[in-house]
Nucleic acid binder design. Structure first.
Lengths: 299, 299
DNA sequence: ATCGGCGATACCTTTTCGGTATATCCTGAA
DNA sequence: TTCAGGATATACCGAAAAGGTATCGCCGAT
């Protein structure tokens, strides 16, 4: 007469009795003795207010109520097994959802490769990409909206781990008609007096600032022809002949009309690092699995 | 490290903690104290080999594994409630499947009405009709292939209950061109010397035998023009002018060209009873519910 | 009539579950 | 730094539930 419902053990017992059509055989299958089985079934019947089995001289047979419950019980037991299996998988980082913050200029080469590799290794994990700026990523990490972010030139934060994934060389994007296109070797100081396109415009401490201070370290003030928001736009401007643009190597995948790429031979001090960002206290197995993949990429 | 899976109680506890995001609040909602909750969740976690909650200073938060289990658990709990409800319904005869054996000549009036009425009262019961002869019905009842049968002139069987549902008058089916069609009153003995169509041909002790012995009781030997299997065929023969046919009243619903029906005014001794047949030991609530409907029909 | 197989019951043992008290950890404030 | 407050975890105990053994009662087959 209690209000609480069944227990799965009772459903397991019930299914065993229904399938064996015998309390005794079912008790052997369940490795218990027969009386507890009788008692559990009786408890279920009194809770339902209906008989589940017709006791005959040769064993038992399902009633209508029993037949209905039998269908439901099989389904429920199957689902409960699946639930445990899926939870275990999720605990190993092989199932679930991974929200990743990405940004412009690494979207064209490294990040797709990493994500592709991760999806092959963990096909049951749903990967969701969010395009967001550096600071949006930090905020989203703190608010648990993303689990991991990709960015460059990230300032240290106490609760965020920075993990350098990949260091790229700087390259110069220029129009085919520019005189530099015929030179074998372009050095950083050659940029003096050249119209430069800088990005990103908005955030301080980003690539644009690094580039400008590197220019000054090389002994000249850069001629900033344009400032734009992202690498795609800046390459588009290069394509129209607005000037030169220093980009990470991976930007070469952006092929626009007239745009060619040349190595900057002495740009070693310009470290263009791709970093992974994640919460220092994040113990998620999905993050660990993802970082494993990422590190297997660290050249 | 045990092999056995979850219990529903654990899933209920888990869902409460996940929804309240707090062991304490969940314990209040479940009307138990907090330590048992902690222990049950720990048991689940150790069984899964994965944490389900991240314990923070302000409460708890689901891990990936927890999120997966949460979805599954809600589904399973919902299904287990439904299972109990459906079993209870089935126990009351309001859910399930009812296999009914029917036969030819009552199919046209009484049986459809009864079944319609039953389906209105028990919309969740699936009614399956099986057209079978008297003896097929008896066998099918014994083998549990049907729960109830309809028939006429059924011989007593020890394990089968006969329940007379409805008593019909006998009528005479004849062709419009027959001389009787102009008479106001046709009496049984008027059938002397008339070509009669009898059915069913196959089974002994059926309507045909009853009719013949009734003729002999009235002092004449019937002229058996034809014997056919069922009432539909016999009416078809009447329609073609092969002769006369004594039928139950409900056969009037069979309208064929040229066939008219006339009362047999002194046929009272020809009881055409429609019987329900079911197993004497059948305690099924569906049968009880069906017989309730049937009896509410017994004029 | 008797025997054997089945489920039900009585009674006892073992396990599990829930409650109380307390420990431990973390955070926020003085 | 310390302390208070609120959170979960642990230790220990009593209560409830589950399982085991022995036995009963019933029914059908021999």
């Amino acid at each position: 007469m209690s209000i609480r419902g069944f227990e799965l053990r009772q459903l397991r017992y019930f299914v065993a009795v229904a399938e064996e059509q015998s309390f005794r055989k079912a008790s052997e299958r369940l490795h218990i003795s027969q009386p507890p089985l009788t008692r559990q079934i009786q408890a279920m019947e009194s809770e339902l207010g209906a008989e589940l089995f017709m006791r005959t001289s040769r064993g038992v047979e399902l009633t209508q109520a029993g037949r209905i419950l039998f269908e439901e019980a099989n389904n429920i037991l199957m689902l409960s097994e699946r639930a445990a299996e899926r939870a275990i998988l999720a605990g190993k980082g092989q199932l679930g959802r991974l929200d990743i913050g990405i940004f412009g200029s690494a979207t064209f080469d490294t990040i797709p490769k990493i994500i592709l590799s991760f999806r092959n290794a963990h096909p049951n994990v749903k990967v969701v990409l969010h395009n967001m700026t550096k600071w949006e990523q930090i905020t989203a990490l703190r608010e648990r909206r993303i689990t991991v972010g990709f960015n460059r030139f990230v300032t240290e934060e106490a609760d965020i781990v920075l993990d350098t994934v990949y260091t790229e060389n700087a390259m110069l994007a220029l129009h085919r008609s520019h005189p530099f296109s015929r030179r074998n070797e372009i050095r950083f100081k050659d940029l003096r007096g050249q119209p430069l396109i800088l990005y990103p415009r908005s955030s301080r401490g980003g690539f644009a600032d690094i580039l400008m201070s590197t220019c000054r370290d090389s002994g000249f003030e850069p001629w900033v022809a344009h400032e734009v928001d992202d690498v795609s736009t800046s390459i588009a401007l290069v394509s129209c002949g607005f000037g030169l643009c220093v980009v990470p190597e991976s930007a070469r995948n952006l092929k626009l009309p007239g745009v060619i790429y040349r190595p900057l031979t002495d740009a070693k001090r310009l470290n263009i690092d791709l970093c992974c960002l994640y919460r220092r206290d994040d113990q998620s197995p999905l993050l660990a699995a993802f970082m494993d993949i990422v590190h297997s990429y660290g050249r």
